[in-house]
């Protein structure tokens, strides 16, 4: 497929010079995010995140399967990030680019390896039956900062998701359909979010948050920090690029923590709004009362 068009020399100069004077093309502050929107779908587990012109959709799903032989007490949790030509014609189906591999590794480290989802709670019958939870990340529009948007979408989708209720009686596992019993949320331990800094200048002295695609194309280095609101780092990735002063990186982490707290509040607020919206009919209220045991 065609390569992504590179910014022209004058375009590059313009962006870089503006950044040197602490100006951005869209008039934002250096540490300001684009207008951030989060919405949930009609179904459980669908989250749609928009950062300016970047748009990512995440969908969580679950099914019952057999656990891995070496981990009989754990459920299965996967995050699938396949970039389609929808995001950019440069992405090809079934041929992962570097962007895609790094994105999937980062999400994996941030959400999966940090233990955000309690995989032990997904186990139904040890060694025989467990839930396999899967999140599919669909990038609908790529205008920079895919990582932060995708991470927010994944976390929001998983927190919004409900898996079918189950019961075990006499060794017989019953999975109830949505019509029989209301679905139950996942056992969620903490919500990590990614904050990506982009660095500009010969020594990476200008640090910028939420870079657009054009800015990403001309940056000299980037650093993604994943944190949760309790101030735990889940992952840091500055994978090469121009060396940046260590003290500056520490400052970036501190600022990232404040941003993560904002993300955390946003997701909490939107989830609460969504619950209220769903509860309106009274039908749900009736169902949940029925299910109380």
């Amino acid at each position: 497929m065609p390569r992504e068009a590179e910014p022209s020399l004058s375009e590059r100069q313009f962006v870089l010079q503006a950044l040197q004077e602490n100006l951005r093309l869209d008039g934002r502050e250096l540490d300001q995010y684009r207008p951030l929107e989060l919405s949930f779908g009609d179904q459980y587990g669908v989250a749609d995140v928009t950062f300016g012109r970047t748009r990512v959709l995440a969908k969580a799903s679950a099914e019952v399967t057999v656990p891995y032989a070496d981990r009989p007490l754990d459920g299965i949790f996967n995050i699938a990030t396949e970039l389609s030509p929808m995001a950019s014609p440069a992405f090809e189906v079934n041929r992962p680019t570097e962007t895609e591999i790094l994105l999937s590794r980062l999400l994996e480290k941030t959400v999966r390896r940090s233990g955000a989802l309690d995989t032990e709670s997904l186990c139904l019958v040890a060694g025989q039956k467990c839930w396999s939870v899967r999140v599919d990340v669909h990038v609908l529009s790529h205008d920079g900062n895919l990582i932060d948007a995708a991470c927010l979408a994944v976390v929001a989708a998983l927190r919004h998701f409900r898996k079918p209720d189950t019961s075990i009686e006499g060794g017989v596992l019953t999975v109830y359909t949505a019509a029989e019993r209301e679905a139950v949320p996942l056992s969620w331990l903490h919500s990590p979010f990614c904050v990506t800094w982009s660095f500009f200048g010969d020594e990476g002295e200008t640090a910028v948050l939420d870079a657009t695609r054009l800015e990403e194309q001309v940056r000299v280095a980037s650093c993604t920090v994943s944190l949760n609101k309790h101030g735990e780092i889940c992952q840091i990735a500055k994978l090469g690029g121009v060396p940046v002063d260590a003290v500056a990186l520490l400052q970036c982490t501190a600022v990232a923590l404040t941003k993560v707290k904002e993300f955390s509040e946003l997701v909490d607020k939107k989830l609460a709004e969504d619950v209220k919206k769903r509860d309106k009919g009274g039908f749900m209220a009736e169902l949940s009362a029925e299910n109380e045991r």
């Binding site: 799903s61 099914e63 019952v64 399967t65 899967r134 079918p164 359909t177 949505a178 019509a179």
Partner: peptide, 11 residues
């Protein structure tokens, strides 16, 4: 649309 009466295989 989901079929509320069947648990679908999603993977």
């Amino acid at each position: 649309p989901e079929n509320d009466y069947v648990n679908t295989k999603l993977v």
